[in-house]
């Protein structure tokens, strides 16, 4: 599903943010990418989102080669991904329903499909009954659930989560991770960038550790190592 072969990314001079990385993720896998700040994990996510272009190497995601991808193709490619961020990135002037529906409108889904699909996905993330709330009226955990619903509403192949629990307390973090696990069990490939040690250690998933742009370890049922 995700295939990185000898991928590097440097910003100007100095050490590359990602340095000769090799990573292979199968369809339906759940993978943690861990590392301290500046280890290159955010750059990795940005490369996968095609927000950045790699300096060298080959990236294939969901059957699409990212190098040299035409500008107009990028929008279509991103529809195969669902993305969740630490700061939720919800539209504050729109309610829960509209925030999720937005993702469907943007890709031109007809209203009748949206009316059916949005309640369905809100139910799935445990937000049934909160359709009309605005982001500011929700807790952090609930806001992240809205963001996850928005990421999933278009049924992406892959869910990318960049520090999804960074702004949340431990209990809520756990709930969000459980939700991501459920989503993974329903067939979506999930890649979570985090430095939440407790969660990584307790979930016993595949863990990829980065340090200074280099992938230093890649373990099945791994734990969080300080590199």
């Amino acid at each position: 599903m995700i295939d990185l072969v000898d991928v590097s990314k440097s910003y100007g001079k100095g050490l590359p943010a990602v340095n000769h990385a090799n990573l292979h993720v199968e369809k339906g896998e759940f993978v943690f990418v861990v590392g301290s700040s500046g280890s290159g994990k955010s750059t990795l996510i940005k490369l996968l989102m095609k927000e950045l272009d790699s300096t060298s190497g080959r990236i294939t995601v969901s059957g699409e080669r990212l190098e040299g991808m035409k500008h107009r193709r990028i929008a279509k490619y991103r529809r195969k991904l669902g993305v969740v961020f630490q700061d939720f990135r919800l539209l504050k002037d729109r309610n829960v329903y509209e925030n999720v529906a937005f993702a469907q409108r943007v890709i031109g889904r007809p209203t009748r499909v949206i009316r059916k699909r949005v309640p369905e996905i809100l139910q799935e993330v445990g937000l049934a009954g909160k359709y009309k709330s605005f982001p500011d009226e929700l807790s952090g955990g609930e806001q992240q659930r809205v963001a996850i619903a928005r990421a999933l509403v278009n049924r992406p192949d892959i869910l990318l989560a960049d520090e999804p629990t960074g702004n949340l307390d431990p209990k809520t973090s756990e709930e969000i991770m459980t939700l991501l696990e459920e989503i993974n069990e329903r067939g979506t490939t999930v890649l979570v960038v985090t430095h939440n040690k407790d969660i990584v250690n307790s979930m016993k998933k595949r863990v990829v550790t980065m340090h200074d742009g280099i992938i230093v370890s890649d373990e099945e049922e791994g734990g969080y190592h300080e590199a």
């Binding site: 279509k76 991103r78 943007v106």
Partner: peptide
Amino acid sequence: KEEIGIMKMIGATDGF
């Protein structure tokens, strides 16, 4: 700006 960023992340075309 924020909304536009989200739109692009979700896969909105430039035209949209």
